[in-house]
Simulated scan of single mutants.
Amino acid sequence: MKALVCRQFGSVKDVELASVAEPELTDPHAVTIAVEFASVSHATGLMIAGQYQRRPPLPFVPGTEVVGHVVACGHAVTRLHPGDRVVAIADWGGYAERLTLPEYTVYPVPESLPSTSALPIPLSYGTAYCGLVWRCGLRAQDTVLVLGAGAGVGLAALEIGRQLGATVIACASTEAKRAEALRRGATHALAPEDLAASVKALTDGRGADVVVDPVGGDLFGQALRAAAPNARILSIGFASGVIPQAPVNLLLVKNLTLHGFFFGRYIGWTPTNERAEHASALQPVMSTLLQWAAEGKLEPTVSAVYPLTGLGDALAALESRKVVGKVAIKIKETET
Score class of each variant (00 low, 15 high):
2 K>R: 15
3 A>T: 02
4 L>Q: 00
9 F>Y: 15
10 G>W: 14
11 S>R: 13
12 V>G: 13
20 V>H: 06
20 V>C: 05
20 V>T: 12
21 A>E: 15
23 P>M: 05
25 L>F: 08
26 T>A: 13
30 A>Y: 01
31 V>H: 04
33 I>Y: 03
41 S>E: 11
41 S>T: 15
42 H>C: 07
43 A>D: 11
43 A>Y: 03
44 T>V: 09
45 G>T: 01
47 M>K: 08
51 Q>G: 10
52 Y>K: 00
57 P>T: 15
62 P>T: 06
63 G>R: 03
67 V>E: 00
68 G>D: 07
75 H>E: 12
79 R>V: 11
80 L>C: 04
85 R>V: 12
86 V>D: 02
88 A>K: 05
90 A>S: 10
92 W>P: 04
93 G>A: 11
94 G>N: 10
94 G>A: 11
97 E>D: 14
99 L>I: 12
102 P>K: 09
102 P>W: 02
105 T>M: 15
106 V>I: 08
106 V>C: 09
109 V>C: 00
118 A>M: 08
120 P>A: 04
123 L>M: 14
124 S>C: 14
127 T>S: 09
128 A>M: 06
128 A>P: 14
132 L>D: 10
135 R>E: 12
137 G>Y: 03
139 R>W: 10
141 Q>G: 01
147 L>R: 08
149 A>Y: 10
150 G>K: 06
150 G>R: 01
153 V>D: 07
155 L>E: 13
164 L>E: 02
166 A>L: 04
168 V>H: 09
168 V>R: 03
168 V>K: 07
171 C>K: 04
172 A>T: 08
172 A>M: 03
172 A>V: 03
174 T>Y: 11
179 A>T: 06
179 A>H: 07
183 R>D: 02
184 R>N: 13
184 R>K: 11
192 P>W: 10
195 L>I: 02
201 A>F: 07
205 G>R: 09
206 R>Y: 13
207 G>I: 00
208 A>N: 08
213 D>W: 02
215 V>W: 04
217 G>M: 07
220 F>S: 05
220 F>D: 02
222 Q>I: 04
224 L>R: 10
224 L>A: 05
226 A>Y: 01
229 P>H: 05
231 A>V: 00
233 I>N: 03
237 G>V: 04
239 A>R: 08
240 S>Q: 05
241 G>M: 14
243 I>T: 15
243 I>Q: 13
244 P>G: 12
246 A>Q: 09
249 N>S: 14
252 L>Q: 08
252 L>D: 00
253 V>F: 15
257 T>Q: 12
260 G>F: 14
269 W>P: 00
272 T>E: 15
272 T>I: 13
276 A>R: 15
282 L>Y: 05
283 Q>I: 13
288 T>C: 12
288 T>G: 02
288 T>E: 15
288 T>P: 09
290 L>W: 07
291 Q>R: 13
291 Q>F: 00
294 A>S: 10
294 A>H: 06
298 L>C: 06
299 E>K: 15
307 P>V: 06
308 L>S: 02
311 L>R: 01
314 A>E: 08
315 L>Y: 04
319 E>C: 03
322 K>D: 08
323 V>L: 05
324 V>S: 12
324 V>C: 01
329 I>N: 06
329 I>S: 09
336 T>P: 13
336 T>E: 13
336 T>C: 05
336 T>N: 14
336 T>V: 10
